[in-house]
């Protein structure tokens, strides 16, 4: 494969315009990897942010020393 244009044509437009099983499965495998990894990372980042919101609700910390004011 030479570039993204040829990749796109190979996946979606070859063999009477509907692509082949080989192309679909290669595309699906790469997409599944990024969906699973990206989805998991986004979920942890969201949970981490949520958990931080309720932390130290009544504490004021010195930003330089991290010691309670």
């Amino acid at each position: 494969m030479n570039d993204f244009y040829h990749l796109h044509r190979w996946v979606f437009l070859n063999q009477n315009g509907d692509g082949s099983m080989q192309a679909h499965h290669l595309f699906a495998a790469y997409a599944a990897v990024w969906l699973i990894q990206g989805g998991y990372a986004a979920w942890i980042a969201y949970q981490w942010w949520q958990a931080g919101k309720n932390l130290h609700p009544d504490l004021s910390l010195n930003p330089d020393t991290n010691v309670e004011l």
Partner: peptide, 21 residues
């Protein structure tokens, strides 16, 4: 343990897609 499940899920998913083709 969670990262293990993520990578094992990917191994199984991509393996099945490859195996079918």
């Amino acid at each position: 343990a969670e990262v293990t499940v993520v990578y094992a899920s990917i191994s199984l998913t991509t393996g099945m897609l490859w195996g079918r083709a």
